[in-house]
Design a protein around this nucleic acid. Sequence first.
DNA 1: GTCTATATGTTGATAGAC
DNA 2: GTCTATCAACATATAGAC
Lengths: 220, 220
Amino acid sequence: MSERTKPANGGDPGDLEAEARILEAARQVFTRHGTSGARMQQIAAEAGVNQALIHYYFRTKQQLADRVFLEAVGRMSRGLAPALAAERTLEEVILRFVEGYIDAMRQTPFLPAYILSETLHHPERLEALMQQAMHTVPAAVGRRALDRVSALVDDAVARGVMRPLTPRQLLVSALALVAFPFVGRPILMPLLDMDEEDFSRFLDERRAELPGFLLHAIRP
Amino acid sequence: MSERTKPANGGDPGDLEAEARILEAARQVFTRHGTSGARMQQIAAEAGVNQALIHYYFRTKQQLADRVFLEAVGRMSRGLAPALAAERTLEEVILRFVEGYIDAMRQTPFLPAYILSETLHHPERLEALMQQAMHTVPAAVGRRALDRVSALVDDAVARGVMRPLTPRQLLVSALALVAFPFVGRPILMPLLDMDEEDFSRFLDERRAELPGFLLHAIRP
DNA sequence: GTCTATATGTTGATAGAC
DNA sequence: GTCTATCAACATATAGAC
């Protein structure tokens, strides 16, 4: 058989294949320490393999980092896009947006801060991604999102449930309100003296309050 | 004279003393690349000195990085604290808060993202800072800020200009609305297709719209 | 105070056995 | 596919002349 040989898993914990274990470990380490702060040795250790095997599967650190970053942006986009995609009124979109994003990011609470940090340190990666991947990534985000919001705003204003606000500002505000708790999590938790459990309750609270907060903010 | 000898400035551009030039260069490089991504060589080059001189003044990279981070947190706090400190109504505090923070961060637009990134990668630094520096830093931020907001909310609710919202949520929301444009700047600019000038106009727009947005959001 | 070497330690990456 | 051993390249830090 010329099939790609499946691993004998000659090693350690977890019954995932080595490649998958490496990728998962890479997610953890890159997310916590950033691309330049991450160490191949630590990834190897957490994956239960040795450094050489990482290079066998992913060639270079840079390629592995790019892979992790790309996946992260994808997951983030998939957390944001659905609410905007569906044909709904602004009120419904807001509700979906808040609940959808918070529910999605709860799974991977460091993701937003990681993406932000990487974008700060390596802006060229995002730019490259924006050009090439206008379709790969559910990049309804971006200008298309702005168009969508503009249309929703026009409709809501016409229906008299909203005062005329700049769509761009509204988009950023909505994004800010849902994303900031995650983006700022490493600061907010110690600052507001929260542990994991407190933070989780904080998110519940927010998920419930935020739609009303936003609706009040935009009504005439 | 036993005075500390002043430098002959035997070098390069800028008429600042070497120590100050190094510190300024360090701010630039650490802010853009993060502590682990920053290279002492680059700092030396941008300061117009050689690597050895950096160690002469700041001993180790870690110490220099700590110094830059500490200053950054200080500047950030000074951008946030004034609005909360003054004795005012919630409405006035909101106005001051929005205008004060946006005006302050305009000077150093990468600062919030840098602080966030560092806090993500080195949470221990912030924790250390929180304990020891409860007074060094204008750390009215934190629990004291929360108490302040609670009092303002109680008053506003009693006056009938606000519906009862969780103070913690309001604090995070207000922070989110002003900080996110800066924190997310590396993402927002390419995403919304803005250049420096566009971003500046965006901030003007926001500075004008945000107080009203927040006041609408909290009213009964 | 500031420079030119240079020592020292990491780290990403490869070679080659199994 | 997976491992051990090792290389080559940097990056931080120090020594010592001026």
